[in-house]
Structure formats: structure tokens, C-alpha cells
Amino acid sequence: MRPFEYARPSDLAQALAAAGPDTVFIAGGTTVVDLMRLDVLAPRRLVGLGDVAELRRTELDGDPVRLGAGVTMAEAAALPLVRERYPALAAAIDLAASAQIRNVATLGGNLLQKTRCPYFRDASSPCGRRRPGDACSALTGHLEQRAVLGASPHCVAPYPGDMAVALVALEASVEAATAAKVVTVQVADLFREPGDAPHKETVLGDGDIITAVLLPAPRGTSAFVKLRDRASFAFAAASAAVSLELDHDRVVAARIALGGVATRPWRSSEAESAVSGERLTPERAFAAGEAAFEAVARTHENRRGIALGARAVTAALLACRGG
């Protein structure tokens, strides 16, 4: 780890003012410390957000519900309101990382977690996501879990998180503070596809701070399904979140998002169209899962991601039906 100075602003204005070149914000630190140790991040200054009370401001009786970005994953998942009204969010948090990490990692930090692509995490490999202009090492190298959706010739790394996938299906937003103003961004619009600039991961600027997650009133029910290589404490091989309005067994409206198989949390209008207005049968649910990948040319590399992604969507849809 490279030497760095540490600043500890006591409010949001000071934190925003502390932004600058070679400066990284740190909240729970479960991503930042890991990546600093790998030399993937090597800031000259670290700005701790632990004393910024604004980031803990939570309003459960509001519309939207507001969860402070500095609230930990464990704290958020323990809220009865989250468990009862936003089951997809509660499940996404419960199934993420380990209990120790959920006790420290914050909502804002979780959203901004970095890809697990081994070439990104190896500071000696070229990686355009880590160093602008570098070629993608994974394209010619070995990457078992390539993004099936949203990849470009410059980056094929999947977005690893679970919570953002649930938030996309719930049509949640984040509130972010920039030096000039407060902005609200739909989680579905927060992340960029890599295109020819994979280092630009979100629409936020470098010195901006996510201050809250905003949850609109739930419509219908929701569910989150995560498929992984072992039963617990693993990143998603594929995940799906569904928010569903049902009239008996007929789908009135569906919001469907996929994780683990795309370069960013991926909302699928194709999957949604495949079930809207239809009776929710297992066959229809699977057709929706397949529809999410209908525009993708099948290759040997993406077969697994497509198969798992389609099944995650199927399972999440059927979970909303109650089985």
C-alpha cells in the first residue's frame, strides 16, 4: 500500500471540498482497502466519510423512503420496512458478501463496488477500466465470467453487485451531492456501459458523493434470486430482481433486472414485454428469461451466462407468484 494522507471531514460540505486529484473517499472501506492493498487504487489522500452525519439521514415515513448512503448493509436489511415492503432489496443484501462485511459496507459504497475481473484486480495487467486507453486483457485472456450484455471491445467485465440489481427493479434512485448542487439519478441510469471509455463507470463526477438511496412506494411484490458457485459468500454467477404487479395470475406490469451477466445492472425491457399482460406460468417465466438475451449471438463463451441468467429471471418471476 502506498503512503497517503488521511482527512476526516465532519460534514458534507467539508467532504465535498476535500475532493481533488489523487483523492479517494472511503466509507466502510471493504472495497477501497482491498484495492489499495492490491495497488489498484493508490490515492495520495484518503477522505473518510464516517463523521458525515448527512450520510446517515434516513426517513422511513417519507415518499420516497430515504436510506442514508452511509447506512450499513446490515442496518438497512434489518429495517422491518425494508423486509416487509421491499423483499427484493432485503434478499439482495442478505445474499451479498458475509455478515462481517455487511456490518461495515455502506449502501453508497456497495453501489460503487468495483468489478471482480482478475485483470482489473491485477495492477500489472493492462486494463482500460483501471487505466484509460489500455486494451482489455480479458478479451484475449481467460475470464470465465464475461458480461453477456453491455460488453464492448474495450471491456467485458461484469458488474458484480446484487443490491443495485434489486434497486433497478424497484425503480429506486440515488441522491448525490456535487460541489454545485444535489442531483437525483435513477439507479438504472447511474452506471455506464463501458463503450470506449470503461474507466467512466458512473454518470457521477469524481468528487461527487452519493448521499442517499431513495425508494419509491412499492408496486406489487418483488423478489431477488441469486445463482452462485457455492451456497453462500460468493458473487453472483447470475442474479435477477423482479418487481411485479399481478391481477390474480395475470401480469399487469413487470420490472425485471439482471446482475452478474452484464457490464452494469441490466434492466430488460425484452423480458418485461414477454410477460406483460400474460398469465404467469413457468413456461411464460422462462420465455421472459430467454427474451432478456434474444439480441445476443450465442457463443461458447456466453452459453453459461445466458443459461444462468434466463433461469434467474424465471425463478425470480415465479417467486413473486409465491413459488
Binding site: 472511503i26 472501506g29 462481517q100 462485511i101 456490518n103 461495515v104
Partner: peptide, 21 residues
């Protein structure tokens, strides 16, 4: 998880926490 300790009443990983934080 070998480095698990409690900070302010909850279990955490001491290898992922900078002491200054």
C-alpha cells in the same frame, strides 16, 4: 474471517479496516 473482531458491538474484519477509520 480469521481476523474477526467486534467494533462498536458488531463483528467486522480487522484486515479490511484502516485503524484511522
Amino acid at each position: 474471517g480469521a481476523c474477526t473482531v467486534h467494533v462498536d458491538g458488531v463483528r467486522v474484519l480487522a484486515c479490511l479496516l484502516l485503524a484511522v477509520t
